[in-house]
Design a protein around this nucleic acid. Structure first.
Lengths: 352, 352
DNA sequence: TGTTGATTTGCAAGCGCTTTACAAGTCTGG
DNA sequence: CCAGACTTGTAAAGCGCTTGCAAATCAACA
């Protein structure tokens, strides 16, 4: 039988003796004059090697700059030490903070991070999910396409998965979400306590769960604390233009609302522009508040009251939960965990 | 000889017949009554299989939801179809836009993206780099720690690498950077054309290459077009507080500068706050401009003149360059490529 | 129908690694 | 001094996949 040596380059060497091509465990074994098994045992700390041998192997490995071949290793250990993150097509601060939280936690856990974002439709997301098969030990999923059916069809069974801001009925995946109810409650309490009754709400994209939760709490709080007041709800899409349009509509209302709760900061900022253009003073003529606490919120004039969500914490907690599921496959799925939201009062709503 | 079956779970099945555990190429082969070789050839489109067999294999693979095991595949093909991105500890829009550009281009090229950011020091970055060995086909590096020595010591030789905003003397890696010179030239031309002569510059962090390039162009343009005017340069660190402090210093100067060029938008915004606090009108009393065009720039009052850098383009171009190097290892390294910067004139500098 | 040439298919090696089984050596106690 | 109990090292299997080569199948021509 002819030896099968396709594609192996000739092993040149650097001036310091380190080879150009990847060194394998065999090279280390040969150089240290032991078997490959001993090298494996020594480097993985399984014991069964003399302190002396261990030292020699370590030395050789370091000199040769040996790094175990990840693919070969995960082929046999069935561990990739990598987690995948399926994220929506996200812009701005939210995205970077999320990745940041995930990445930091991943490094702490000794895990790599394979990201895939920007999926236009469910098919693309499904393809991305499939492509991750066998490359990851677990999955972090945040996706508007991720409903129960989608997950059941595309998630490899048995692959630990944690959902972020993606609540799925029926199936029980562990999930972490922003505490929209709590945040909205804080904000509404603040506005109501300030004496406002006619409070309007600007929605985000339809079918967005975060928006739905914020709106639900808005309606509920209004019903509780301003019983005579019927809800004033305007459409929006999370962009500042839609906030501007909503602002114009609000200006035309008789009587004009006393306060506005926009489902996110960008729309609040757009709305503020509409009010400013109309010559209204905030908060004297009308109070306004958003949700997210984007960095910009504190720089607009007047600075925007909002609800701060610690996105990095969401990512971090989700990754840690995932890591726990990878270690303990039997770990029960906690589906209702929430990441705290906190009220940040600034000039746009405070009468002081 | 005893069969070696450690760790193989019993193959349960879903209600629809899809198995719980990962299905392998062998399972497909058995089910389609062909050899594994034929399955491989069929699924990889190497030809050499009848249309009939191909169809049957495809059908079985789909039914079994077969996905090739990535690790096994890259073990033999020596391709991971993954690129690594080594990024600095980045906040905000810059980071998300960069990832966005990289991610979109990567998907278009059929590549996965392994990210590692948030490195506090060079050792951490080096560890991250080492950990990526054998997991990636190429590397995208943007790191303040990445100087020539760092790269030579930590980069696996022969691994295609593209630097972003990281210029390394001596060694010749392909590199892409923001066109700081061009952007600063546009901005300075705009300010000088408006008749300003006493133009101040607010620096960013020391040793930051982008800042150094912007400052160099500032000095050069000033020398060319306002020969009598000596440069007015103030320290800064990219945060708005340092911009505020710089603004206070500028206010104390006699004569007061007519215009300010801040090395980034956040400092410009801080500086504007100082001017506003002092009752100065912009641009009537003093003109101000930044660099980056963060989203906030258009929302501050007055809206900020700045230089827009298409960060997503930087990421996209870098990834495409990397992909080209992966395909053609001999491709010559282009070290000087720049991503266009464009001037965005808003109220903070336009006298209209 | 026999033979040739062109396809199609199967066999088996081996990518680099971990781990089990086993052999060889080292040390105790009777 | 040797049987039995450890210790340390070696050999080899096999993870799932691709691919060179050989065998088998087929079509076609003489």
């Amino acid at each position: 039988m002819k030896t099968f040596t396709f594609r192996r380059k000739s092993p040149g060497r650097h001036s310091d003796g380190a080879p150009y091509v990847a060194v394998t465990i065999k090279d280390v074994a040969r150089e240290a004059k032991v078997s490959v098994a001993s090298v494996s045992r020594a480097l993985n700390g399984h014991g069964g090697v003399t302190a002396d041998t261990l030292e020699r192997i370590r030395e050789v490995a370091a000199r040769l700059r040996y790094v175990p071949h990840g693919a070969a290793r995960s082929l046999i250990t069935r561990r990739t030490h990598t987690v995948g993150a399926l994220l929506p097509d996200l812009y701005g601060e939210f995205f970077s903070e999320l990745i940041r939280g995930i990445d930091l936690a991943a490094r702490a856990q000794g895990l790599h991070l394979l990201v895939s974002s920007s999926h236009d439709d469910a098919d693309e997301a499904a393809a991305a999910l499939r492509a991750m098969q066998g490359r990851v030990d677990g999955l972090l999923v945040m996706s508007p396409h991720a409903d129960a059916a989608f997950l059941r069809h595309n998630l490899p069974p048995g692959l630990p998965t944690v959902l972020m801001n993606t609540v799925v009925d029926g199936d029980h995946y562990p999930a972490l979400s922003v505490d929209n109810h709590g945040g909205a409650r804080l904000l509404m309490t603040h506005l109501l306590d300030a004496g406002h009754q006619r409070i309007a709400f600007i929605q985000g994209p339809p079918k967005n769960r975060d928006v739905a939760e914020r709106e639900a709490t808005y309606r509920q709080m209004l019903a509780e604390r301003a019983p005579g007041q019927s809800p004033i709800v305007l459409p929006g899409d999370f962009n500042e233009e839609s906030g501007y349009r909503a602002g114009q509509q609000l200006l035309a209302m008789q009587p004009r609302p006393e306060a506005v709760f926009a489902a996110n900061d960008m729309m609040a900022i757009g709305c503020m522009a509409a009010f400013r253009d109309a010559g209204l003073r905030m908060p004297e003529d009308i109070a306004i508040a958003g949700f997210d606490d984007v960095p910009m919120a504190r720089y607009v004039t007047p600075a925007l009251t909002t609800v701060r969500v610690r996105i990095a914490d969401l990512g971090r907690d989700a990754l840690n939960e995932l890591a726990a599921h990878i270690v303990d496959t039997e770990r029960p799925a906690q589906t209702g965990r929430r990441v705290d939201a906190e009220l940040v009062v600034r000039e746009s709503s405070s009468k002081v």
